[in-house]
């Protein structure tokens, strides 16, 4: 493979690393979720590039087009994007509830596990 070919993959990998770093190192929950999205989006790029055929075109059957890119990665990534947004929604909903319960969404400020802060007041549902 040419260096140029590597270069593209490597940039994508750098994107992934930035995303992953954002998830792990950042304490703010919204930032973590944004980071998660960065990370996943970069993985999607990696996947999609697997299906690309140079000189090919979008896999929709048309007159006069001979070479198509592989549709399978596209399908997979469509599904994965949906999964990603579902995770984002649930994560954000949790963040809202944590903001209500703790008054902050900075994970670092919430300390760890063991200490006992008593049972949370029962919530009124409805």
């Amino acid at each position: 493979m040419t260096v140029l070919g590597f270069f593209n993959y490597w940039v994508v990998i750098i994107l992934m690393m930035i995303g992953l770093y954002c998830v792990i190192a950042r304490g703010n929950m919204i930032k973590k979720i944004i980071g998660l999205n960065l990370f996943q989006t970069s993985v999607f790029i990696l996947f999609i590039s697997a299906g690309k055929v140079v000189g090919g075109s979008t896999p929709i059957l048309r007159e006069g087009v001979e070479v198509y890119s592989n549709p399978l990665p596209h399908v997979l990534i469509l599904t994965a994007i949906v999964v990603g947004v579902a995770i984002t929604a649930v994560g954000l909903a949790l963040a809202v509830r944590i903001q209500e319960a703790y008054g902050t969404i900075e994970d670092d400020h919430l300390g760890d596990d063991g200490e006992d802060d008593g049972p949370f007041e029962e919530e009124q549902r409805g």
Binding site: N37, T41, F44, I45, I48, S49, G51, K52, V53, G56, S57, T58, P59, I60, Y68, S69, P73, H74, I77, L78, I81, V82, G84, V85
Partner: peptide
């Protein structure tokens, strides 16, 4: 946009709408 360049029209549309 990158997805579109990579011939993934559906994915591009989705990513734009979702992301």
């Amino acid at each position: 946009a990158l997805f579109a360049v990579l011939d993934a029209g559906d994915v591009a549309l989705t990513e734009a709408a979702v992301g």
